[in-house]
Design a protein around this nucleic acid. Sequence first.
DNA 1: ATCCTATTTCGATGGATGTCGAAATAGCAG
DNA 2: CTGCTATTTCGACATCCATCGAAATAGGAT
Lengths: 112, 112
Amino acid sequence: MDVEIAARQLEALGNVTRLEVYRALVRAGPDGLAVGQLQARFGIAGSTLSHHLKRLLERGLISQERQATSLICRANYKAMDGLIGFLADECCADGAGATRGSPRVRSLASAP
Amino acid sequence: MDVEIAARQLEALGNVTRLEVYRALVRAGPDGLAVGQLQARFGIAGSTLSHHLKRLLERGLISQERQATSLICRANYKAMDGLIGFLADECCADGAGATRGSPRVRSLASAP
DNA sequence: ATCCTATTTCGATGGATGTCGAAATAGCAG
DNA sequence: CTGCTATTTCGACATCCATCGAAATAGGAT
């Protein structure tokens, strides 16, 4: 995973509203949630929500699918897994119990 | 982990410069790196680096310790572990292989 | 065709960010 | 005390961000 991509995804999740939206989508599972449902749940302006969803979408963290007039949003688990992998492997070296276990870590930890 | 804290930490890592600095500190291990070493490595203005370090510090992602005239910076592994835990447990429910395995996940995934 | 619901785009606004150079501070060495 | 090195604070600037309401668009129902 490229550091720039990781940073952009982290930035997308680094806003309370977006993080809560994203979490709601993850918890919703494969069925996802429609934009309107999210809007009702969080009580923010539709335009604001649309703006945040666009951000999550263009960073690859969610996907969308039209279903009649509604737009269903779903979390992209693969992206999250990749991001967690980046943090665990590239960043969480020999410190506290980060147990993702790519052996790459140790060699990097002793690099210049 | 509170969603607001997680968002603030994610935001702190959501910038290429800061993420690279943070990664360098993790890789440096328990010895850490002095501010000046980081500055030399990344070639940015001292004031800019100081600004970024302050951000990482106030979000609890790094710690600093004076050593004569130098300021040694170290990654706070516990914080990173907590953040990864948040992402894995609170966000990465039953999707692709997120293997952090707190049983909390499943019950949340079926919450309203 | 017309209406209705769902969502996005537009324009605006206040505030935060990233960056720099210059000046100020902190701590050690003579 | 004076000078030297390391780091922070200050002021400035351009850019991006979060938010809103209003208007525009998309798609189905009557």
